[in-house]
Amino acid sequence: MIGSFPQYEVFADEFLDHAREGFYNAFVDRPACLSLLGDVAGRDVLDAACGPGLYAAELTARGARVTGFDLSPRMVALSRERVPAATFRVHDLGAPLGWLPSASVDLVLLALVYEYVDDRVAMLRELRRVLRPGGVLVLSRMHPTGDWLRHPGDYFTPRVVEETWNEGWHVRFWLSSLQDTCAELREAGFLIEQLVEPRPVPEGAAVDPLRYERLSHQPTGFLAIRAIPDPRRG
């Protein structure tokens, strides 16, 4: 189990400095998620596990009304400083969103946090509840193939692993298969509209040619999904 400890709290400021222009974040995941969200002007967007507000800043700049939350109080403080036009609060993604009415948002963004949640079906059901008819969920997660290459073993049995990133950032997260992610979405009442394995945007080639080349040809980065509430399930 992962539990509700805010793992990123201890390195929140460092993470902001890293993710602002970090290759994986700035040239792979953010462009992919924003593309899947589409035109957000005039729409209500829930930025679930918002981190330091990098996605929220771009969404607000594109005309969205953003509400965000994160388990880390420091991440929420950084988001408020970065995006004063949005609304943020401290909240555990694994807990019900009792402060949000049903059918109150048009879009939900769930970027690079899926693997930190123990009961992902319950989380997804709650996100489906707050989506309006015609709403969209966009989620990204670490690519299950890349996870398996770093942690060989039984690909099909979910398990918790530990890694140390960058300057000693220690994290624990779930390894799970692509099949499991698709099944969890279906069980929670979603239909997958689009699934992409994002490759770096062209601007990344000049920033880090070696990483650009590797991520352009190997499934070791991220996975991104655009899903809609299944209209057959009410």
Rank of each mutant, 00 (worst) to 15 (best):
S4K: 11
Q7G: 06
F11I: 04
D13S: 07
F15S: 02
G22P: 13
A26W: 12
L34H: 02
V40Y: 01
G42H: 05
D44Q: 14
V45S: 03
G53F: 13
A56V: 06
A56S: 14
L59A: 05
R62M: 05
G63P: 05
G63N: 11
A64S: 07
T67S: 09
D70L: 11
L71G: 14
M75K: 01
V76K: 02
L78F: 09
S79D: 09
S79N: 06
R80L: 04
V83L: 01
V83P: 02
F88S: 03
H91N: 08
D92R: 12
A95N: 08
G98W: 05
G98V: 06
L100M: 10
P101K: 15
S102A: 15
A103K: 11
S104Y: 03
V105Y: 07
L107H: 06
L109S: 10
L109K: 06
A111G: 14
A111R: 02
L112A: 06
Y116K: 09
D118Y: 00
V121F: 01
M123L: 14
R128P: 01
V130I: 10
L131F: 07
R132C: 12
V136C: 09
L137G: 06
M142I: 12
T145W: 08
T145K: 06
T145C: 02
G146R: 08
L149S: 04
G153T: 14
G153E: 08
F156Q: 13
T157R: 12
V160S: 11
V161Q: 11
E162M: 07
W165R: 11
W169H: 07
W169C: 03
V171K: 07
S177W: 08
T181Q: 09
E184G: 00
E184W: 01
L185K: 13
L185A: 12
F190T: 11
E193S: 08
Q194K: 15
L195D: 06
V196A: 04
R199C: 10
P200G: 10
E203Y: 06
G204S: 02
A205L: 10
D208L: 01
D208C: 07
P209A: 14
P209I: 13
R211A: 12
Y212L: 04
Q218I: 14
G221W: 01
R226T: 09
P229M: 05
